[in-house]
Design a protein around this nucleic acid. Structure first.
Lengths: 345, 345
DNA sequence: CTGTTAGCGCCTTCAA
DNA sequence: TTGAAGGCGCTAACAG
């Protein structure tokens, strides 16, 4: 591989000036710069990243650390994120490092190692939880990072997130407008940032409508079809008043809800309205539902570019205020929501 | 971050000796070594990879380059491979870099850039094709790489592969033993290493059985359910003699074959036997077939460890002969294969 | 505008 | 068994 020294010699210049020319410093003769660049190109010269990193402190490499699980290859967020982020960073001439961490040691130790060897410029964090220890660790050590999501209550970090609280508020607003009073909510795992935010939106909407929450029709847990089915069965058990609408934090949950309602002989939306949030992952399209599923939609795929922008902006020292981005979502009303059945109460 | 100098000072030694102690050189007092290591640990010392790379030439980072496609997140090989390889390399204290390359420039140029900046120790190559230009490029430049699969005819490189030729020969052997004479083969894209190897196995088995190939019942192309369906319809068209058995290079193809045969009113295995090769990806389990699908099985998931071993072995300078590994496969006969129907010819 | 000097953190001669 | 010196390739501060 050609080195800076080689280029300098070929160009008949000092190493320093060659470096400056290549890096577009201002104090270089325009002609010289052009000539040096031509020589460098003809020699296929590329700066050695390790050497540059040693002196500038920047390597152009960022990492995503995810815990190893058997289901990792089925995890839509992981799959889309890895492909999307890698493409984005690659397109910016940076390198994306994926680190699947074993479960034999705490995750912060992995970060410790990864930043300790001084090779990475920053990190992307997935699936933030409340009081996220990873974020705390990185903040305490002054390591740049961007979060896919947000860590409440005071998000003093770069992030790209969607308005999860608003998403649920808006969903509730639609259902309440249709006359629903008893609205169930099947949410994700408690402690996860997005789930907490949606719960806030749910409760706020209830409060604003003068309704009070009923723990019997609020459920938190993994977002699988099976849980959607079982939870729905449980909520529609005899004796208790049945919800007239069900909100799901994920389309997989909604799939289970559909199956449960069908098994129970309840019609959608005649007996029960159903809504869900749709990340627009290819695995389970909202279009696969009959009747067509009303959703709030925020394609996960749209998040990689702004997320990448956030991290590069952070590395470039841009102010935090510009690095806290909330993406858009849409409310799409299809055929799974309708007026609340009469005489519910 | 603590540096070698810090450790040396804390240990009351020279930088040189500290380095030697940490790297287990022979000419260090045993006591000294222990003490230095203890100090280093207590200071959370980690060698700076960039600095080390600069002098030793090794960074402990390897990369996988894949072309950007919209379907990338649905590509089972990509998903499993990325998760598996990253976990393997992480477990060995190395870093796995994923590079999703845009399609705006030739892939060798990407390699050029990636190796040119002197940051990577080696590469993993996926989906090799005959006369693979990437392999040629890396070989010509003396860059270590390992191939998932094999580049024929003379695989003068490190690889982990399965015996694709044997897999098809064995499949054919089973079907021929059941009396089948007209055996269709729905293969993957021509030019891909595994597809070529399987085609060789198919043709050799035909030849050994005294049969001659019929282009009408051999098909090459993408391995989707849709193509399995359409190809089967085409092969069972009136006028031409119908195959009594169909071999698929992938279970997705087999899914389409099943649907086509059902639509045509043909029974499995009464009218047509079906076999497939099963990579054991979670997306479409062979267990989802009725009647249960007979397969050759070689779990993709088992390939990441040996593949990683190959590349690290290569980097450690082990002889090539030890770095060409052929994994095992199983022949699993379930209920989709049976005797050829009488009076076919 | 250009060159000289110094140093990033580490490892590897060489000499003691 | 240990230390001093040199250099990997690059950039930044300081002269000219």
């Amino acid at each position: 591989m050609a080195t800076l020294k080689d280029v300098a010699r070929a160009a008949g210049l000092s190493i320093t000036q060659t470096s400056r020319a290549l890096n577009d410093h201002s104090d270089v003769n325009e002609m010289t710069r052009k000539r040096v660049k031509a020589v460098a190109r003809s020699m296929n010269y590329q700066a050695n990243i390790s050497a540059r990193k040693l002196v500038t402190g920047r390597s152009g490499m960022v990492a995503l650390v995810v815990p190893q699980t058997p289901e990792l290859p089925q995890n839509g967020l992981f799959i889309e994120g890895v492909a999307g982020l890698s493409a984005q960073f690659s397109g910016r001439g940076m390198q994306f490092v994926l680190h699947v961490a074993g479960n034999d040691r705490p995750i912060t130790e992995v970060y410790q190692r990864l930043i300790g060897n001084g090779m990475l410029d920053g990190f992307v964090l997935f699936s933030p939880c409340d009081d996220d220890p990873r974020a705390a660790f990185l903040r305490d050590h002054g390591i740049p990072f961007v979060v896919h999501g947000r860590i409440w209550p005071d998000a003093d970090h770069a992030f790209f997130d969607i308005d999860n609280e608003g998403i649920l508020y808006q969903t509730m607003d639609h259902l309440i407008g249709l006359g629903h009073r008893r609205i169930a909510f099947i949410n994700g795992q408690p402690g996860h940032g997005f789930a907490s935010a949606r719960m806030r939106g749910y409760l706020r909407a209830l409060h604003d409508a003068g309704l009070s929450p009923d723990p019997a029709i609020v459920s938190e847990g993994e977002m699988t079809e099976a849980r959607g089915l079982l939870t729905t069965i449980g909520m529609c058990r005899e004796g208790a008043p049945r919800p007239t609408a069900i909100i799901c934090s994920d389309v997989r949950l909604a799939k289970g809800v559909y199956r449960a309602l069908e098994a129970l002989g309840l019609s959608i939306p005649g007996d029960v309205s159903v809504m869900a949030h749709d990340d627009h992952l290819p695995q389970l399209r909202a279009s696969a539902f009959f009747p067509a599923l009303s959703v709030t939609k925020a394609p996960l795929r749209d998040s990689w570019k702004p997320l990448t922008d956030c991290l590069t902006g952070l590395l470039d020292g841009r102010p935090l205020a510009q690095l806290q981005i909330v993406g858009h979502h849409e409310l799409i009303i299809r055929n799974s929501t309708g007026p609340a059945p009469a005489g519910g109460d």
